[in-house]
Nucleic acid binder design. Structure first.
Lengths: 189, 189
DNA sequence: TGGACTGCTTGATATAAATCAAGAATTCAG
DNA sequence: CTGAATTCTTGATTTATATCAAGCAGTCCA
């Protein structure tokens, strides 16, 4: 099994044959640090798997960048609404480091369902898992203080803290870099 | 077309025949005000469509109720993760008023994909729309003040404000009832 | 090798929102 | 209809977090 097949296999329950078909539709590509995968307003016509590196999903709002998410090695990245409904993308997606991707274009993505009948069902299950994560995230904003969100996120994403500028993590947790820094000092002591 | 078929049709692009098959699997039922559709820790083995009335999705946390969402007429309700993966439910779901439902049990829900091949694909598209709504909601917490969240929500859900206790809306917007009340007074003037 | 960035920290202050407490207005049940 | 619950409002106060401002520490080069 190739690296890509292993990753896809960890998300989707497919047999070896189907796995090979799906994997064959993804092509390797590289983004350099700072390169944009997608810009707000553009049309996202691809879905990618991050083989190494990381990407930041953000929006420019009133002169400030709001980081929505950071996608790291082993995760998928796209603007799902733009890919699916052909609407302008809501997000900027930019490489935080040199990043290796496996990318499938929209035409091939839309063909997977024909080639692998189980695909839609598998993808639905995958999306259900993402759903749960988003629900947790919303719940965190409804019920936790900044400090509790920091602790929770740190517990579950320790490695990210030495890999990306902390201000981006602060933003995706809904706090300023200053607040993040103060909470961090407290947590380290 | 029955009422239920019309509603299903508004979410899923199915032909008349498939629509009738799907609709036939839902059975009408009633919840009285205060009745629980689901309790935290239970297993959710059903998915329902709200024909009239409304349900509140909430969690009891440190003695406080956190309202995650209010589902109203024309929307679906379930604990998706519990239904899909057979894990204990995360949410309480309780009727805020007498509510009429069309309900499908898990066994029939899982059969839809066999009866209507297009189903998984349609459901995936439906989930993608829900995704966008959840992303918007997360973004609101990342970038807006309580007042801005109030205004935005009011703009898009005016009718809810005369139908449910405002404290629940306050909770799902991530603020206290007192803050909600003050913002409301300001907005009304 | 020494600026010029970029990112992080720290302190002082301002502001938004929570909490606490009481009372008014609704709704509901007998 | 009436008393009891529930829900909403309002004011006083506290607390969490943002903002503003400055300085420091790496690092990226030219």
């Amino acid at each position: 099994m190739t690296e890509l097949e292993q990753y896809i296999n960890s998300y989707f329950g497919l047999n070896a044959e189907d796995l090979a078909i799906v994997a064959s539709l993804f092509k390797p590509s590289v983004l350099l640090k700072g390169d944009y995968y997608l810009k707000t307003g553009g049309y996202c016509n691809k879905l990618s798997f991050i083989s190494s590196g990381m990407l930041r999903v953000f929006v420019l709002q009133d002169g400030k960048e709001i980081t929505q998410w950071i996608s790291t090695t082993g995760y998928f990245v796209t603007d799902l609404a733009s890919l699916t409904f052909e609407v302008p993308a809501r997000w900027n997606i930019q490489a935080l480091s040199d990043t290796q991707l496996f990318t499938i274009d929209k035409e091939d993505y839309n063909r997977i369902g024909d080639l692998v009948p189980k695909w839609h069902k598998m993808e639905k299950l995958f999306m259900t898992k993402c759903f749960t994560i988003m629900e947790d995230r919303i719940f965190a904003f409804l019920s936790m203080t900044a400090e509790q969100r920091y602790d929770f996120f740190f517990e579950h994403n320790r490695e990210l803290f030495n890999q990306v500028p902390l201000q981006y993590i602060a933003s995706m947790l809904g706090m300023t870099p200053e607040t993040f820094s103060r909470i961090r000092r407290k947590a380290l002591s």
